[in-house]
Design a protein around this nucleic acid. Structure first.
Lengths: 340, 340
DNA sequence: TTTCGTCGTTGAAAGGTTTCAACTACGGTT
DNA sequence: AACCGTAGTTGAAACCTTTCAACGACGAAA
């Protein structure tokens, strides 16, 4: 089934021959069934079933000049925040029958570039990206070629591409203000690398609050990644400082880091939140079920995904659509790790 | 850049014209550079850069008859176990320059079928799948068409397709034996739907241990899904039983369920592990950082992904390669949720 | 009877890449 | 001087789908 006696795959041509119609008719049955006499249609469909014919997408794309699918490059598939966003995107796209091709840059500019190559060669109709490296020129080129581009969880600065982001500076302020309100004075911000805009903005927001609050100060512990391992390593650094110099509050750039920090600190006998308060960022599902339930700054992730997909579909439909710059607001979630 | 003055995309033909060579030579530069005089090669490459030419993958695939990419259908992207496996696969594939197209069935046979359609139309060269529905006929058809198929985290029963799995029955035995060794007698197994082989085998393993241990018994609490929400709901059911009838140990079919159960029980004031011991399955990263660190049965996930990718590459290279049936062994990880 | 419209069907053309048999040019042999 | 072999290059053919101008058949209108 699906293979002709001569060993070749079944094509529309074979179907046409077997059904005794022209290949144009077969194509019509597939794409504009209402143009075809019901009797013919049924017959052709029967033959298609018998022969096990399956459309060759490469040929279809070649003809159409563009791939129906949408590409998405996420920063880290192992971070539930991004899979939740991707889920939101996929839900919306699948309503429109468009497949999503997911690429994982893992915060590596080289891998990001590889996926951009792939998507460019594939002529995807749209691209969703949370950029790592210097990709603006590539994005411009893609757009010139007719690929819709929407930036996710980041703003480009230039008003060239639509973007859906969460206000990171506000999030940073919310987190820091909460720590200050809890009476904490020596705050450490853990995250990195500092080139990442998310990191920069969250840090900036926190800095604003500290600047406006006499008697408080902020230190920056840079990490090479945004995962739990990096969190544990950062915690080691803080522990090495000794009890005196140690901060009394930690603001982690995301929940994975926060969970790593939390784990290492409790293991070393530091009491959370008594000795050190911890607040994370993202409010992933696991934050609530941590050893000490984690306070966090919640981002509306599914919404982020939905809006991103909608915006992309809009740009695909009308490449001249005006550039949107959606900024969603994060929200404080208080749990035990900062109680008191 | 990338667009000819006439508005069309740049093709090999345009490059050939601009470089003053034939289109066969351009293709040679791209695919067999050693066949081309260095001077010519450099010149063509320069023109390619100037014109911003990018290969059209659809045309290449059409010609080749097969897509270079590999498709993978996972059961649930929001479960870290599967993203870890996918990561293992992607790592290995990217070493061979093959992109991975990830599809998420979300344990829904309809979505699984949609992705199978997609991959079939795309003529992917290989498919990795953790099946949900009755897909054997589809898999057979794919193989007839020349697509390599490897089943992941499951065995097919028939010896038709290579599979990489972890011994679920052994895992079930390990978990149950551990609970019995801790002195627990009334064990509840939480998971489902029971049609899933993973669930069936883990349950069977547990049953074996219970049958061999006088004075113990096992009840089965079926869930509709394998996520934290289902775990919380199952916990409600157990709580409704009342203190007396309640089990003194719970074996959850995966860690997400276990975390859900744990959350709901502690919220209701049940002490873990004193009143009820809990053990999960998978040993995802978050198991260790749960409110009460979770005992679990660890599966070698990255290895699972690596071996799956290797096996698939083997089958792609030689479709007649003999069917492999790799079974990896799970391992007990004891933490606080079963201590004592 | 002729003419016109409509509906359904036809088949050639286009889309961009890769492959491969055929060709050219040129240095080396006899 | 004729011939051979090789390295480099050429361009037509094939891959499969979709589109669209053109065609045939048939019923209705003149």
């Amino acid at each position: 089934m699906g293979i002709e006696p001569n060993g070749r795959r079944v094509s529309v041509k074979d179907v046409a021959a077997a059904a005794g119609v022209s290949l144009g008719t077969v194509s019509n049955v597939l794409n504009r069934p209402e143009k075809v006499l019901p009797a013919t249609r049924e017959h052709v469909l029967a033959v298609i079933g018998d022969l096990g014919f399956v459309r060759n997408d490469a040929a279809r794309q070649l003809r159409a000049g563009t791939n129906h699918a949408v590409g998405m490059i996420v920063l880290d598939v192992r971070n539930p925040f991004f899979t939740d966003v991707a889920q939101g995107v996929e839900d919306r796209l699948s309503e429109h029958g468009r497949p999503l091709i997911l690429g994982n840059s893992g915060q590596d500019a080289r891998r990001e570039s590889t996926y951009l190559d792939l998507f460019e060669e594939q002529r995807v109709s749209g691209l969703l990206i949370t950029p790592v490296g210097q990709v603006l020129p590539r994005l411009r080129r893609l757009r010139e070629r007719g690929t819709a581009v929407v930036v996710v969880d980041r703003r480009t600065g230039t008003r060239e591409f639509s973007s859906i982001a969460v206000d990171d500076k506000l999030g940073g302020r919310i987190a820091a203000q909460h720590l200050v309100d809890c009476g904490r004075r020596r705050i450490a911000f853990v995250g990195g690398p500092k080139g990442l805009n998310q990191v920069k903005h969250r840090l900036r927001g926190a800095q604003d609050v500290v600047d406006a609050s006499p008697g408080t100060r902020l230190t920056f512990v840079e990490t090479p990644m945004m995962d739990a391992v990096a969190g544990r390593q950062a915690a080691e650094q803080l522990l090495a400082l000794g009890k005196r110099a140690r901060p009394d509050a930690i603001f982690a750039a995301n929940d994975l880091i926060a969970l790593g920090v939390l784990q290492a600190l409790t293991l070393a006998g530091v009491r959370v939140p008594d000795d050190v308060a911890i607040i994370g960022y993202d409010d992933i599902d696991f934050a609530a079920s941590a050893a000490i339930p984690l306070s966090s700054v919640r981002q509306p992730r599914e919404q982020l995904g939905n809006v991103a997909a909608d915006t992309l579909l809009e740009v695909i439909a009308d490449p001249a659509a005006k550039v949107r710059d959606v900024v969603l607001e994060p929200e404080l979630v208080v749990r035990r790790s900062t109680a008191g």
